[in-house]
């Protein structure tokens, strides 16, 4: 029963490594081991791993650091912590940093097997969800996408919301932007989210975002995928019975997240925005080819190949230009941009 999931086990005790390897190999996984953090990271860089099981407490590079660097370079890899302490704080800390699960030491083969198969199951679901359904049916068979779908930016675990941790000023930040003035009027009817073509995939629906802004959940809002999913269709805005300009609020939140760079680790939309801004500041106009190339090189190099055929077809129809067009008075534009920048934005 070989499957194609490969796992790296990291523990400074060889006996743990070996027994894990034995248990997991029996279950059909491909397993490698490493005896310390340094070795683990080397192997990780080389191989195409799916899951890393790592001991929290190790000399040198410890489990927490391994977790962090794995998540940083390949967020799609799941990390399971082995902890000798089994205490809530260290486990929660690890989960916050993106660990998929943890196994308290000592553990039985059955326990390890269970935890790993849960992780694998979750992975396969996510992969399945990512790949759209095929088949020549007229009607889609709709499967409700799970709300906890995988988001690289999202590292939050559910916990009690402590007043102390809320950001009182968040509401004012949003209220002081054009369009954000009426956020207090929201009656939580859900018309916005029900109308939104994308809310079903958002971490939090536009309605929830409003409530969270009011409550001061700054970090959750700014790190959510919701704000980057908004396609600016303004349907929510024209339908809101309280005439709240939700689309404008989304823009305000994007701006805030942009400024506060820690929220942007792997999100693609901010990247696109950044390149676009650079091009416009350079030429005064957009240059589609340059934008596409730059963006995909960073975000998804493989996609360039996929897109190149379409690019060629567009090119043949003279719908792609190799060279940018710069406006004549670019200096005027740049002076203006600089001044606006110096004014420090809207808030």
């Amino acid at each position: 029963m070989k499957n194609n999931v490969s796992i790296l086990v990291v523990d400074d005790e060889p006996i743990v490594c070996d027994s894990c390897k034995k248990i997991l190999t029996e279950k059909g996984f491909t397993v490698e081991t490493a005896l310390n953090g340094e070795e683990a990271l080397k192997k990780f860089k080389k191989g195409d791993l799916d899951i890393v099981i790592v001991d929290l407490k190790m000399p040198g590079i410890d489990g927490m650091e391994v977790l962090q660097s794995v998540k940083k370079s390949k967020p799609e890899v799941d990390v399971v912590m082995i902890t000798g302490y089994g205490t809530i704080p260290s486990a929660v800390e690890a989960m916050k940093l993106g660990a998929a699960d943890y196994v308290p030491k000592p553990f039985t083969p059955k326990e390890l097997g269970q935890i790993i198969s849960q992780v694998v199951e979750k992975r396969s679901k996510l992969v399945a969800e990512k790949a759209p359904k095929k088949g020549a049916i007229l009607l889609d068979v709709f499967k409700k996408p799970s709300k906890v779908a995988y988001h690289p930016e999202r590292v939050w675990v559910k916990d009690i919301k402590i007043e102390e941790a809320l950001d009182e000023n968040f509401l004012n930040e949003v209220r002081s932007t054009p369009g954000g003035e009426r956020v207090m009027d929201c009656m939580q009817c859900g018309t916005c989210s029900g109308s939104c073509p994308l809310s079903y995939r958002m971490d939090y629906t536009p309605r929830e975002i409003n409530a969270m802004v009011r409550a001061g959940l700054r970090d959750e809002v700014l790190s959510s995928n919701s704000i980057w999913m908004c396609s600016s269709c303004y349907l929510c805005t024209v339908r809101c019975p309280r005439q709240i300009k939700i689309t404008d609020i989304m823009y305000a939140l994007k701006n805030l997240a942009m400024k506060d760079k820690r929220f942007l680790k792997k999100a693609k939309s901010p990247l696109l925005s950044k390149y676009f801004v650079a091009i416009v500041n350079r030429y005064g106009r957009n240059h589609e080819l340059e934008l596409t190339l730059k963006f995909f090189l960073r975000a998804n190099p493989r996609a360039i190949l996929k897109h190149s055929l379409m690019g060629l077809r567009l090119f043949l129809r003279k719908r792609f230009s190799l060279f940018p067009k710069r406006i004549k008075n670019i200096n005027q534009l740049r002076t203006m941009v600089r001044k606006a920048e110096a004014l420090g934005g809207l808030r």
Binding site: L139, D140, F142, Q188, C189, G190, T191, G194, R239, P241
Partner: peptide, 28 residues
């Protein structure tokens, strides 16, 4: 269903929607 209906449409997309009125909403 706690949520104001966002729209009523006759455009069926999923199974069981053919010929029906479909109410789209957020169940808050």
């Amino acid at each position: 269903v706690r949520g104001k209906a966002a729209e009523v449409t006759d455009f069926a997309v999923y199974k069981g929607e053919e010929g029906k009125l479909i109410v789209r909403c957020e169940d808050t």
